[in-house]
Design a protein around this nucleic acid. Structure first.
Lengths: 352, 352
DNA sequence: TTGAAAGCGCTAACAA
DNA sequence: TTGTTAGCGCTTTCAA
């Protein structure tokens, strides 16, 4: 083992070894050598040396000099749902395919946190930022704008740059209709038997609720604002809402529209405290797809957001210099009960 | 808006504005000013200016100079399971609490990929690397070692540095026993009715299988190597294994030990193609906890790995200069059917 | 209590 | 076809 094995080789080391100048080495190793008209043979030589000494460019130095970093950021509310984890997984694949590096952070839906994270990412000179599900996208925008950092909104729209979000209104309508159609004509669902739980006062929730209300009115008539129970994106608040409802009405509604899989976990917590019979005639519709949830012992309809499509579209838009601060809608997909869809993990070659 | 609002302020800007030198500004702003005995008033002045001009240190420059970056890496096989996504979530919380920044990447269980990722992370001068579930931890070690990068193994052990992993052997035993005890004394499970599906030839699978076999032998007698069906960590391979078994035996085993929730998704895919009755008398035990899986229409026993404990322990060990390349075992926790445990998302303040 | 100066490793004019 | 040079923004001696 060479004594310098702890020290990484630099272009200067290779410069000495090859007899070329540092700038020549640099050009050869960063791909700009063609337009610098460097002799094939010198390039060859330097590449060989680089290989031999396991040279890899110091990205900090490169970035400091060129004001880039090769890092592309993704700001997520949380990792730990199948929706957001598949977002991270898909994002990573796209970024790496572009020869860049993903840096993913979770801001826990705290606007102040979101801004500070953006600040910090700026200080690393990240090249682009994907703002996903931010509570205050425009606050993050201000930080990016001030730093000249390209950015785009996903999942929850902002008003300052382009946003790629699901068509939550249509999704809400479709899901509501599907829930209602689960019930047979001889024992149809009544308006006071269908409730929406979860979500908060953000764009996604509002749109879903709007779709829910419209479709409910169209199909069942009546309009019960009381049938909306926002609980935030918290499993426990949702659990409490279900408990309260149950206490007051001695049963759950026959049909539930659950605003997000996080809230659905609140339903699970409720379930844990009650016998299976409590859910024997329940129908649930839920935003975001989770494969295990789809096989629960009662019909679960899920709306799967088009994560792959959102990321693809976002990459398209973020490149465009003067994209309007416009909302691009992608249709989510209704998933029938007992459906196991392939996900971002399929196609990975590992099989043991 | 000032014309320079696109340019971030540097210590030189503040140096000019404050009348102090750049090195003084630097010291004030990076906390070393006390030991440089800088006057409180100058410090005050500079801090005020920094605030006013929204100064934030350029991490690339800082890192280039000091060979640090403030980044702590986590290498994950994949994001998109509740086990790994909770790992990412927990890791992030710990890292941020230390005032560092998490950089999370997924290597898709490809040893070559793992090494290249490590190389690349090295080129960003990350300060520490947590190697989680790597297929070839020692390969990654070699890269880290050569770069003088502190690292540690989680989930899957290596032989060169300390590893923090679940006690998969005990976990396998406990889970197997729990599965068997689900059956009543008047219709007990027979040895040929209990199968293990999933996993591959890695440490975790081997240990779980060993625990499975031992406990099965102890409680049911007999030893059927045929009752082990590795499928890799692939939903589809698992699905095919279930299909094959079903075709050959016209039914599933009465009891399944599923090696990972990823393989469980293969069971879901199988389920989607078969009527509910096929699973009416099924008992499943599965490694890794997924809240939705816990409520499926048949008893599902899950082993929850102690993610919080693993991360905590790993942080402890990675600091120690001469930790032995030893395996630290953490007991996983048996989770009864229909249990909704709190996760890393609980305690987040958001509630809408 | 502070400043001057060197240099981390790289890129990109500008010369030659 | 290549070398020289001047930084990118910061930390860190060393000197004052």
């Amino acid at each position: 083992m060479k004594k310098d094995s702890k020290k990484k080789a630099t272009i200067y080391d290779l410069s000495v070894l090859s007899g070329s100048s540092a700038s020549t080495v640099s050009a050869v190793l960063n791909g700009t050598w063609r337009k610098r008209r460097i002799k094939e043979s010198t390039a060859e030589l330097i590449r060989g040396l680089a290989e031999e000494h396991q040279y890899t460019a110091n990205q900090q130095a490169r970035g400091l000099r060129s004001s880039r970093s090769g890092l592309i950021g993704l700001m997520l509310p949380v990792y730990d749902t199948r929706y957001f984890s598949s977002m991270a997984q898909t994002f990573e694949a796209h970024v790496r395919q572009r020869g860049q590096w993903p840096i993913v952070v979770s801001s826990l839906r705290d606007p102040e946190e979101e801004r500070q994270m953006a600040e910090s990412l700026v200080s690393y000179n990240i090249d682009q930022l994907f703002i996903c599900g931010a509570t205050d996208p425009d606050g993050v925008h201000a930080v990016c704008e001030a730093a000249g950092l390209k950015h785009i909104n996903i999942d929850l729209p902002g008003t300052k740059v382009a946003s790629v979000v699901s068509d939550n209104y249509q999704g809400g309508r479709i899901l509501t209709e599907a829930i209602i159609r689960q019930f047979s004509a001889d024992d149809p669902l009544k308006p006071q038997e269908l409730f929406l739980f979860g979500g908060k006062d953000d764009h996604a929730s509002r749109e879903r609720i709007r779709g829910f209300k419209d479709m409910k009115r169209e199909l069942l008539g009546g309009d019960f604002d009381a049938s909306i129970q926002p609980t935030g994106y918290s499993p426990n608040m949702a659990r409490i809402a279900f408990e309260n409802f149950f206490e007051k009405n001695t049963r759950l509604p026959r049909a539930l529209f659950v605003n997000s899989s996080i809230n659905f976990e609140g339903l699970l917590r409720f379930m844990a405290a009650h016998p299976t019979e409590t859910f024997s005639d329940l129908v649930v519709g839920c935003f975001d797809y989770d494969p295990f949830a789809s096989f629960l012992p009662f019909p679960v309809l899920m709306m799967r957001q088009d994560v792959e499509g959102m990321i693809t579209k976002a990459f398209e838009l973020i490149e465009q210099p003067h994209a309007m601060p416009q909302i691009h809608l992608l249709p989510p997909q209704l998933v029938s009960p007992r459906t196991a869809l392939p996900g971002p993990l399929d196609g990975i070659k590992d099989a043991g």
